[in-house]
């Protein structure tokens, strides 16, 4: 299988704190990988390093054969990385359709395809609604339509189900996985909801204190002793 993304020893410190400490992994085409870990483990920083919002202190990143270390976010986007944000970010002065059109323009694609994109994410009927008037679940769908506009090879999804009512979580994840499978897109997502993680990920990366502590199939990671310790809140000393 061909490697879509390779991170090689990427690191980032804030002050004295190593938020991401020499993390290495590779994603193969078609992977739907979940990045999990407790608060402060370094997931968001890791995402920002991959998306280019933060500059890495060290290490290398490759997208396919291309070295993208040091590239600004807009250049990475053009190279094929799409990302969504933990709190869905859309252009609030625009309708759903205009958001999709703008995303297509940004990718030098024909804005006429915007309504198809909205149909793909299931909100074709809401095209002319201002995004400020949409339910949050639909805003997340608009954002998804936007990142699909450039035909990315890799999607970074920062908590795709966060902020959604419980009954909607399953639906959005089914939508996402259906779309990426059909288009052969590789996905890396962070997620807190374990049902979502184990329900959809084909592979799991676990972080703690800035380091990658496990990487493997869902079964293997679930059985990992260190992962269990972190999640069940037992300290190493195991006292009390």
């Amino acid at each position: 299988m061909s490697t879509v993304l390779a991170a090689d020893g990427i690191s980032k410190s804030f002050g004295g704190l190593k938020a991401v400490d020499s993390v290495s992994f590779e994603l193969a085409k078609g992977d739907i990988a979940a990045l999990i870990g407790p608060n402060g483990a370094g997931k968001t920083t890791c995402f920002n390093l991959l998306g280019g919002a933060l500059a890495a202190d060290g290490g290398q990143m490759r997208l396919g054969p291309t070295d993208i270390t040091g590239w600004p976010p807009h250049r990475r986007a053009r190279a094929g990385i799409g990302r969504t944000f933990q709190i869905a970010a859309t252009f609030r002065s625009m309708t759903a359709l205009e958001n999709a059109e703008t995303a297509l323009m940004a990718a030098d694609a024909a804005p006429e395809n915007a309504s198809n994109l909205l149909d793909d994410v299931g909100i074709g009927a809401l095209a002319d609604t201002p995004v400020t008037a949409l339910a949050y679940g639909d805003v997340k769908r608009v954002e998804l339509a936007m990142v699909l506009a450039s035909n990315p090879s890799l999607l970074l999804l920062d908590e795709p189900t966060a902020g959604m009512a419980s009954n909607e979580r399953l639906r959005i994840m089914e939508l996402v996985t259906g779309l990426v499978r059909a288009r052969g897109i590789t996905v890396l997502f962070t997620e807190h909801d374990m049902d979502t993680v184990f329900g959809f990920a084909t592979r799991i990366l676990a972080m703690d204190q800035g380091q990658l502590i496990a990487d493997g199939t869902p079964e293997a990671v679930r059985a990992d002793r260190r992962v269990q310790q972190i999640y069940l809140g037992e300290t190493e000393s195991g006292d009390a």
Partner: peptide, 12 residues
């Protein structure tokens, strides 16, 4: 409207 979003879509 959303600088980070715009950059992540490839807009300089």
């Amino acid at each position: 409207d959303a600088p980070a979003r715009a950059q992540a879509l490839g807009i300089d």
